[in-house]
């Protein structure tokens, strides 16, 4: 009981610098939180009295709602701010917005922002806990964590599992968080997609590269299919959605050729008939809705783990803590 307790520190900016033990701790903590969402009264008082601001500078449905459910099920008070309709459109800087919120005595900020590094920038400037809900092309750590949890639920320990991320790797913060988390936990990671949507050297991140989706399917235990952002077509990265589907699309015909039972993930929102076919999305391989359910549990775990943390006081309190 007296050994140093593992902690996440003040913020969750990305998975890149987390240790295997820290990742494992988050996933293990998420397990009991799953059950709370199945209760009739889906609420525990652990964050009672905490004020959390969800600061969303980019559009988001799933992530914002998932965070909000997680916060509410832990009894925190929440405020949602989106860039439209806030003073951000009047030209206020990110730091000024945050300092004004701090002046109203908040405890945590969940931030989504279009600029890579926005979460770290904020975390270094305010005393509140900061959770990154996606920053530019950098990271989307809670999405990475819920993917890890979903894979672990269905395929056991991640050590040695073969996971291939398919699609737009270059612009994807989901891909980055997945790669860091999976690699740290000992999975083999591959990426697959058009050359135009690949980072310059994925090998440096420890990834195998497949140029054909068929090869990826033959190799992998798990496919994480990324959304093809429609802007990419206008940007000239892919010739047409139809062609993308024909070459890179995950279809049941392609999955049938796989040597083993493949697990299919997708972070949403899906473009049915582009990166993933409807019969795959709704079929037996798909765990896409499990991901959404796990998202709430993982975010509850992160909020819980960041909220306590005053280790210097812990020792003193432990004296009288037993029973």
């Amino acid at each position: 009981m007296s050994e140093e307790r593992l902690s996440l520190g003040k913020d969750l900016v990305g998975l890149e610098h987390l240790s295997a033990e820290q990742l494992q701790m988050i996933l293990d903590t998420a397990e009991p939180f799953k059950e709370i969402s199945e209760r009739r009264i889906k609420k525990v008082p652990v964050l009672r009295g905490k004020t959390i601001v969800n600061l969303f500078f980019e559009a988001s449905t799933r992530t914002r709602i998932s965070f909000e459910f997680a916060e509410k099920r832990l009894s925190a008070d929440t405020v949602n701010i989106s860039s439209s309709g806030s003073s951000v459109v009047k030209g206020e800087t990110l730091v000024d917005t945050a300092r004004n919120l701090e002046a109203m005595r908040i405890d945590m900020v969940v931030i989504r922002h279009g600029a890579s590094g926005a979460a770290r920038f904020l975390a270094e400037r305010i005393p509140s806990n900061v959770i990154n809900a996606g920053d530019g092309w950098h990271e989307h750590p809670t999405q990475g964590l819920l993917d890890l949890l979903t894979i672990r639920d269905h395929r056991g320990p991640l050590q040695g599992l073969k996971v291939c991320i398919v699609g737009d790797i270059l612009h994807s913060r989901v891909a980055r968080s997945n790669i860091y988390g999976l690699r740290t936990l000992g999975a083999e990671v591959a990426v697959c997609g058009p050359r135009t949507l690949m980072p310059p050297s994925p090998e440096e991140m420890g990834c195998t590269v497949f140029t054909h989706v068929e090869e990826a399917i033959e190799w992998a235990d798990v496919l994480n299919v990324l959304r093809l952002q429609l802007e990419r077509m206008e940007g000239g990265y892919v010739p047409s959605l139809r062609e993308y589907n024909r070459i890179w699309g995950v279809s049941s015909r392609r999955l049938e050729a796989a040597p083993r039972d493949i697990l299919v993930l997708h972070p949403g929102p899906m473009n049915r008939g582009v990166e993933i076919d409807s019969d795959v999305a709704d079929g037996d391989h798909s765990v896409i809705l499990n991901q959404v359910t796990n998202g709430v549990a993982v975010r509850m775990a992160v909020l819980y783990l960041l909220a306590g943390g005053q280790p210097e006081k812990a020792e003193a309190a432990k004296q009288g803590a037993e029973s």
Binding site: R5, S7, M25, D28, T29, I36, V44, P45, V46, L74, Y304, L305, A307, G308, G309, Q310, P311, K313, A314, A316, A317, K318, A321
Partner: peptide, 13 residues
Amino acid sequence: LYRDDLEVVGPIP
């Protein structure tokens, strides 16, 4: 999750 000393003790597994 129902303890009254989370603030002080920090998150407990």
